[in-house]
């Protein structure tokens, strides 16, 4: 294909996106669109899967059976989200193995938030409320993204997410109605998870070089700072309602803007965790690698069994 032909294909492609048409797997797409989508969708998938680790840590220690079944169901949902997203990435011509390899050898990233430890039960509340809350904010914005399979995965995921946030908030609400010690535990969880949650929206707009291209492709429908602001505005009243204090002395309502002003994120910490030096980066990756390694015999046995069954079936048919 010559350059002129590629250009006209790209023009048609851009016009389709501008017209809110969805792009489907077999449609022509610029190579950069394909690559960017593989990167973003797989990063999203990895986040769902690695995100199961900090919460899985508390399933066996949930304080009641009700909390336990809820947490178990939530973590199971996240596994499903990972699968929807891996499937969406695979439609772009990359195999599941390649995707997993990229996670396990560290070339692919996942959301840095999961590199923080879950020290107390209240952390499970904070994760549901803040981390899933922030994820929902990002994901709702992606429902109208241009790539069909990604957009459909988002619809399904968003439907399932809302209980995640509610169960988290309910955990903290319950703790805040408890003893002094329980209230302190809830506050401590918020103190530790607040800033990492704000970091989930990524670098500031003026430091986010890919934003323009991603907006064009509707891979992003709102900028990092817009989403972060919306998250703060939504979350502060929820904290106040149950008596939690946001750990930011600069936080205050700005009547003129109609938004909360808030303090500066520690961008140095942000970069450190992204680069692999967070409190749990090594542990998380090792847990993923071990799970994959330890599952090898199961994958092999299932295949051997399937092959044997198929042989038997064809034998039976022959007789």
């Amino acid at each position: 294909m010559n350059e002129a032909q590629t250009t006209s294909l790209e023009e048609v492609f851009n016009r389709r996106i501008d017209a809110e048409e969805k792009i489907e797997p077999k449609d022509w797409m610029p190579e950069k669109y394909r690559k960017t989508h593989i990167r973003q969708i797989s990063q999203h998938a990895h986040s769902e899967i690695v995100g199961m680790l900090p919460e899985g840590n508390w399933i066996s220690r949930a304080p009641t059976l009700r909390r336990k079944v809820a947490l178990l169901a939530k973590v199971q949902d996240e596994a499903g989200h990972g699968l929807y997203l891996y499937s969406a990435a695979e439609t772009l011509g990359i195999s599941r193995d390649e995707l997993l390899d990229q996670l396990h050898d560290g070339t692919a990233k996942y959301s840095s938030i999961f590199n923080y430890p879950t020290l107390t039960w209240a952390d499970i509340g904070a994760i549901g409320w803040l981390v899933d809350g922030a994820a929902i904010m990002n994901q709702v914005a992606l429902i109208n993204t241009s790539y069909g399979p990604y957009s459909r995965a988002m619809v399904r995921i968003c439907k399932e997410e809302s209980f995640h946030q509610r169960q988290g908030y309910e955990i903290l609400m319950t703790l805040m109605k408890g003893t002094d010690e329980q209230r302190a535990m809830a506050q401590d969880a918020l103190d530790r998870w607040w800033w990492p949650s704000l970091m989930m929206f990524g670098p500031r707009d003026d430091e986010s070089p890919n934003t323009a291209q991603s907006m064009r492709w509707k891979l992003k429908r709102k900028s990092n700072d817009e989403l972060r602001q919306a998250f703060v505005d939504q979350t502060v009243p929820q904290a106040e309602l149950i008596g939690l204090r946001i750990p930011d002395p600069a936080l205050c309502w700005n009547e003129e803007r109609g938004h909360y002003d808030f303090g500066e994120i520690d961008w140095d910490e942000f970069r450190q965790v992204v680069q692999g030096n967070g409190p749990c980066n090594r542990e998380r990756l090792e847990a993923r690698r071990a799970a994959h390694r330890n599952g090898t015999w199961v994958r092999e046995a299932a295949l051997a069994h399937a092959a044997k069954q198929a042989d038997r079936d064809s034998l039976r048919k022959a007789i």
């Binding site: 499903g80 699968l83 499937s87 695979e90 399904r156 299932a302 295949l303 069994h305 399937a306 069954q309």
Partner: peptide
């Protein structure tokens, strides 16, 4: 509604049910 990997039809059905 989507896709998944499975070793055989029975596993595909079971996984589809779970997912």
């Amino acid at each position: 509604c989507g896709s998944l990997h499975a070793a055989d039809a029975k596993m595909a059905l079971e996984n589809a049910r779970d997912v």
